[in-house]
Simulated scan of single mutants.
Amino acid sequence: MLKKVFYSALSALLMVSMFAGTSFADTKTQKANSQVIYTAKEIKDTHKLFEKAINGVTDLAKEELPKFVAQEAVLKARSKSKNINQEDKSKEIKVQSTTQLLKVEKKGDAEVKSYVTNTFAAPTEQQLASSDSGSKYDSSYSVIARSTVYYTISYNNGRKYYDMSRVSGSWSILDNSVTVGGYRVLYGQTGINKSGYSVTQKSNYKYPGGAFTYYTPSSWQPIWANDSYVHSIGVTTRCAIERRGSSWTLTFYNNI
C-alpha cells in the first residue's frame, strides 16, 4: 500500500516537473525568438520636444494613424472671470504633436514598434486676456501643457493593434502673473480587442500636482485600429488657469 502511494506521488511529481519544464522551455523559446533590431534614446527635454512639434518633425506621420485620432485643447472662461467678452468665453488652443520611435522588436514573425507621442497645448498671454496671438516658444506663452502617451503598434492576423503602457504630463508656467491648479487626469483605451469584442478600459480620475506619470494595468487589452469602429486610446487632462482676475479651464485631449 505504501509503495502504491509512493509511486503515485512520484508519478504526480514527475508530471508537474514535465509541464513546468515545457512551460519554462516555451518561455525560453519565446525569448530566443525575440530580437531587438532598433533602439533610440528618448528625448525628454520639453523645449526640444516643443520645437520638434511646432516644426512638424515626427517619426509617425498623421497618415499612418487611425482616423479617430483626436488631439485638441479648449480654453473656457469660468463663471467668476472678469472683463472677458462673450465671444471669448470659449476658444480652441492650437495643438502641436511629435512622435518618436523608441524601439523595434522582432517577436517570431511579428514586428512590434514602441512609440512615444508628446503633444502640447500652449495658451498665450493674449488668449488669456481675450485675444489670440503668438506662434513661437517664447514669453508670449503663459502656460505649456504637455501630454505624453507611450504605446506599441503590433500586428496579429493582419490586423493592426495599439496598446498603451503609460501616460505622463506636466504644466510649465512661463508667465509669473499666472497660477495653475485643479489638475485632473483621465486615461484609457476603448475599442475592439483581439477576440472581436468591444472593451472599455479606463482609469478613475486622478488628481496630480504639476506633473504626473501613470502606468496602465497589465490586464488591459490591445485595441484594433480599425477605422470602421470607434476607438479611443490616450489621455485627457484638465486644469484651472488664473491670470489677473480672469479664470479659465483648459481641457486637453491627447488621443493617438
Results as ranks from 00 to 15, higher is better:
218 S>G: 05
12 A>W: 06
168 S>N: 13
170 S>K: 01
113 K>A: 00
127 Q>F: 05
195 S>W: 06
76 K>W: 01
177 S>L: 13
183 Y>P: 01
4 K>H: 06
104 V>R: 12
195 S>K: 12
192 I>P: 07
48 K>S: 15
49 L>Y: 01
102 L>G: 09
214 Y>D: 10
134 G>R: 04
238 R>H: 02
94 K>L: 12
7 Y>I: 15
37 I>P: 08
217 P>C: 02
172 S>V: 04
91 K>T: 05
247 S>Q: 13
60 L>T: 07
229 Y>V: 07
209 G>Y: 13
198 S>P: 00
221 Q>E: 08
128 L>G: 01
210 G>W: 11
253 Y>V: 01
36 V>K: 08
77 A>H: 00
162 Y>R: 06
6 F>E: 10
208 P>K: 05
59 D>L: 10
40 A>I: 13
129 A>V: 14
121 A>G: 07
177 S>I: 08
241 I>L: 11
118 N>M: 11
222 P>K: 04
41 K>V: 11
255 N>D: 09
167 V>S: 02
41 K>I: 10
99 T>I: 09
113 K>F: 00
125 E>P: 02
44 K>F: 04
47 H>C: 09
51 E>R: 05
38 Y>P: 11
53 A>C: 00
128 L>Q: 01
108 G>C: 01
46 T>M: 03
180 V>G: 01
197 Y>I: 02
131 S>Y: 15
184 R>W: 10
30 Q>R: 15
219 S>Y: 10
212 F>V: 00
47 H>W: 13
85 N>D: 14
102 L>M: 05
234 G>V: 07
45 D>H: 11
149 V>S: 10
114 S>R: 01
62 K>P: 05
152 T>L: 03
34 S>F: 10
80 K>A: 15
31 K>Y: 13
114 S>A: 14
77 A>W: 03
4 K>Q: 04
111 E>V: 08
46 T>K: 01
255 N>M: 06
19 F>T: 13
221 Q>M: 07
42 E>L: 11
32 A>F: 06
67 K>Q: 11
224 W>R: 00
39 T>S: 13
146 R>G: 03
181 G>I: 04
64 E>I: 04
203 S>T: 09
203 S>V: 06
241 I>P: 01
122 A>E: 08
93 I>C: 06
33 N>T: 04
198 S>R: 09
32 A>T: 11
125 E>F: 00
48 K>P: 04
92 E>N: 13
209 G>D: 03
201 Q>A: 01
45 D>N: 13
245 G>S: 10
24 F>E: 12
22 T>Y: 14
219 S>L: 06
39 T>I: 13
51 E>Y: 08
223 I>S: 07
171 W>H: 07
231 H>K: 12
133 S>K: 06
27 T>R: 13
101 L>N: 05
113 K>S: 01
23 S>T: 14
87 E>W: 14
97 S>W: 03
70 A>H: 12
232 S>K: 12
118 N>Y: 09
